[in-house]
Design a protein around this nucleic acid. Structure first.
Lengths: 217, 217, 217, 217
DNA sequence: AATGAATGAGTGTTCATTCAT
DNA sequence: TATGAATGAACACTCATTCAT
């Protein structure tokens, strides 16, 4: 087969746009959006300064692109989980694992997503707001479904419960003062594996922290 | 008491430093640290902007001062709660109410604290890190105590549980996609009162969301 | 005639150089030299912008080429007029009509010529200077000739008179605050025909604006 | 009298805004608006770079200010002439002298005015357009008045005549290919004095270039 | 001839900080 | 204390020009 050197060349000449996006993700994650200069991104990407502007209108658009590129995929996965025929508990566990795994595998991206976009002025933009509320809607749906199935108590507002659940996960990703022993990590060498953390978060959310003795309503 | 007229004058001429701090808090809350110019702060404070530098070394120090000025008080309150002779549940409720009330009453300050300090590069500074970890230590202590008292299950890492609890609260303050009905607010006119939210968060944390039927371990 | 097919092809594939020149003329006329990007020109010409540099050394050269390409033809026509056996009055009229007609027919070119070349730093270049002074020399010659023939008064410097004449025409082309009724235009629907304007300019130049009554020297 | 050193000091500390404006006028006149960097202006003004932006929003505003600052004065003088009880001829002469004198005395300003503002994209702005048309309106009025007084022939559109007159003056200021002998200059050492040029322009405009012999209509 | 990706010098503008008064 | 003029480093963005294909 003459799958040709030309083809291989094209395989080697990776998509510059993506190269820039990856570099920017790393740079933003490291120094924050405001702390990052466009020249830092170019340097990290190993390209000429001006080329960045060949692919992106401006610095802001790079950030937005980072968000857009991955959020859709992420959200789709969440939707699959929400619509799957699994039990509520398994769905929540899947969500938890998805989020914590993302943090492990693409921690740069998550950092940028959470710190530079979700927690910034930028977040006020309707587009972003809608995107994130989409996530909460899907998880909220899982909770509501659980309540309808009588698996979850229904004396608590489902949106509020959803928020608490997400907050528990969010902080695992966000918080830098968590003791190492509790940080979700790839190997159990350093702290818990992300599955264990996910498991724990779901367990607290569903079963509560009360010891069995007294508080079983 | 000999509180001289000169002293009284000083009492009338409100503390400029504080005026600046308050103005800065409002400005930072509104436009973010990076989006705020020193001149914006001066304008908001109603003073010449050169004067800012009589009271603060630089912009950064203003932000730090905002943090320092209030965090100590906040932490002290948390400590009082932690050391009080109350039951674990009441302690957690008190913490939850404290945080959510702060958000109601001084939402600007909380915004700055959370968005501009805790979620920024700045947070990497050991001083801030230590300050915040202090909070987690105190709450973690409450959890540990609960476990020792056999009120809380001890098959879950106390730090992890603590984080989940704090995350549930944190998101109430942070998240802008929460439906209005769930946002903790001052009056019950719009959404729940902050006490109700606090109550709910604690209840989920302790009792879990599972309906009584099956999952009472 | 052996106009080969290859030649015909070349005839169909219009001269790219000229296409670029025409596009540039339109673009420069619309946005000014500094306001026009090379990519704008390429876009207007419908070609890739790298190609512009196959035909021209740089942006500047495009402007110069626009000038060079047409100025020679223009100047030649002026020369023909100057050397023709006509009376001074008819010569001046012919010049006036030539200029105003050019403005009507190729207003883009005239705009570029006048605004971007004659009235710009670029004009300082000896080449351009010489080219334009050529025009003035020719018209000045007509005036001088008129004076020698005793058709024109000779108590006024011929160069100065020439300048006044040219200024009167120049402003018709240049001035954007002229009332519509006076602007030289193609049809008499809107304002005067360019011939009428030419006629009027010449008449003022020769006969003066004074009413016959008193001032006939 | 205690007209005080403080007062004198204020007299010495000249208006920085004006210093910048003057410097900018010189720089713009020399290198053109586009060829001038803000740093050039600062350098020429002998001030720090950033200070320019303390007094002007941006480079563009500097140019506009140059125009605004002097145009009003200029226009007022023209108006005085137009409204004076003088004969038409003297009014036109006064206008001619005003313009040519301005060119002599403040040639930088005139250069900037004519080259960078009147003959640029910028000129399209309604404000500038209106300002210049004001000038033409006033001169046009003089012509109209002359026609009503039967001093000027009325078989020619007054606006057109006005334009021709102004064009004759304009070119004296604009044209760089005029022989030195004709350029209006301060002393008669080099070319004509500006009064002589003004005189000549008016004479041509009123009396025409035709020799008395034949063409006295 | 043709394309458009790649380069990087150039420059307008912002704004924290200092300073003279 | 108070003012706001003065400073200048920093940086985003533009765009003419070159180059690999």
């Amino acid at each position: 087969m003459t799958s040709s050197s030309s083809e291989r060349v094209h395989r080697v000449v990776v998509d510059k746009r993506q190269v820039i996006l990856d570099a920017a993700t790393r740079v933003f994650a490291g120094k924050g959006y405001h702390g990052s200069r466009v020249s830092d991104i170019a340097l990290e990407a190993g390209i000429a300064y001006g080329l960045v502007y060949h692919y992106f209108k401006n610095k802001e658009e790079i950030l937005n692109s980072i968000f857009d590129a991955q959020w859709a995929v992420f959200l789709e996965t969440v939707q699959e989980i929400a619509l799957s025929p699994e039990v509520t508990e398994r769905k929540l566990l899947a969500i938890a694992e998805l989020i914590l795994k993302a943090h492990r595998v693409r921690s740069d991206w998550v950092k940028v997503l959470v710190f530079e976009i979700q927690r910034s002025q930028r977040f006020a933009e309707p587009d972003r707001l809608r995107a994130v509320s989409e996530l909460f809607k899907l998880v909220g749906q899982i909770v509501r479904e659980g309540q309808e199935l009588r698996v979850l108590r229904d004396d608590i507002d489902p949106d509020l419960a959803c928020a608490v659940f997400m907050g528990g996960l969010d902080i695992m990703v966000t918080n830098s003062v968590l003791p190492e022993t509790v940080k979700p990590s790839a190997s159990s060498d350093e702290g818990l594996r992300y599955q264990e953390v996910a498991q724990a978060v779901v367990e607290i959310f569903l079963g509560g922290m009360s010891s069995g003795e007294a508080s079983c309503r």
